[in-house]
Simulated assay, not measured.
Amino acid sequence: MTLDQKGKILSGIWKEKEGDQAQFKAEITPDAIVFENSQIDRIEHFSNNIPKTYEFKQAKVQYLEKDNEVFIAGNIQLYDLKEHENEKPMYLSLQRNAPAADDQTQQILSQLIVYPNPVTSDSFNLSFELAEYTDISVDIYSFTGFLVNQQKLKTSDSGHQELAIPFNAPPGNYILNLKYGAKMIKTI
């Protein structure tokens, strides 16, 4: 997603992995981001490759700025214009940072995925790829900066890693810092 902000007005482009994309315009309110005449044509796996038109409704998000990084997390709702019904809310997690030019993040560790997101039990799964063996640790912070969980992870070797992480905390958004060597990847 690309975002441009002018006062309380947001505009940008929403791009999906399947190639679907849409331009949008929205207004920032105290409780949500409310979209204005913003639609996307999506090809769903059950629609026989016929695009369906959805309207962006609203996004209920939290915003956090910390150490030159910006995090936006919450839910976004689409509305099916043909069926006249709301779709299930999607969880949205955005991070903006400016990596150093010599950053080797994608060469050692990549494809960091936390699921289920949101967490629905007393644990979640962490999935990532390691190009080479390295020690890994996880720190989980609240949006107010309080350390909620910290642990070192045992990885067997390089390659695909699937790890179950115990986590018991009140509902909300948290920042996960995955550290390896002197580097770190963050997600919400």
Rank of each mutant, 00 (worst) to 15 (best):
T2N: 05
D4W: 12
D4N: 15
Q5S: 01
Q5I: 00
K6Y: 04
G7K: 10
K8A: 10
I9F: 00
L10V: 02
G12N: 09
I13E: 07
W14G: 12
E16R: 13
E16K: 12
K17P: 06
A22Q: 05
E27S: 05
I28V: 12
I28K: 14
T29W: 09
T29N: 13
P30V: 09
D31V: 04
D31M: 05
F35D: 00
N37I: 02
Q39P: 01
I40R: 10
D41C: 05
R42N: 12
E44T: 15
E44A: 15
H45N: 11
F46S: 06
S47C: 02
N49I: 01
Y54F: 03
Y54N: 09
Y54I: 03
E55L: 04
F56R: 14
K57T: 02
Q58Y: 02
A59M: 10
K60C: 05
K60G: 09
V61S: 07
Y63V: 15
Y63E: 13
N68T: 06
E69S: 14
V70Y: 03
V70E: 08
V70C: 08
F71G: 11
F71M: 09
I72M: 05
I72W: 00
A73H: 11
G74C: 04
N75W: 04
I76S: 10
L78F: 04
Y79N: 11
L81D: 10
L81S: 15
K82S: 12
E83Y: 06
E85F: 03
E87A: 11
E87I: 08
K88H: 05
P89S: 08
P89A: 06
M90G: 15
Y91F: 11
L92Q: 12
S93G: 09
L94S: 14
L94F: 08
L94P: 07
Q95R: 09
R96F: 07
N97Q: 14
N97Y: 08
A98K: 15
A100Y: 03
A100V: 01
A101E: 12
Q106K: 11
Q107D: 01
Q107V: 03
I108D: 08
I108L: 11
L109V: 15
S110N: 06
L112E: 02
L112Y: 00
I113Y: 05
V114H: 04
Y115C: 07
P116G: 09
N117F: 00
P118W: 00
V119C: 10
V119R: 12
V119G: 11
S121G: 15
S121A: 15
S121L: 08
S121Q: 14
S123M: 14
N125I: 02
L126V: 07
F128N: 11
E129S: 14
L130Y: 03
A131M: 05
E132H: 14
T134G: 04
F143I: 10
F143V: 10
F143W: 08
T144K: 11
G145P: 04
G145N: 13
L147E: 12
Q151R: 12
K152Q: 11
L153S: 09
K154R: 07
T155W: 00
S156N: 14
D157I: 03
G159H: 09
H160I: 07
L163F: 04
A164W: 03
A164L: 09
I165F: 03
N168K: 09
N168W: 00
A169T: 05
P170A: 13
P171F: 02
L176I: 11
Y180I: 03
A182H: 09
K183I: 01
I185A: 10
T187N: 05
I188V: 15
I188R: 08
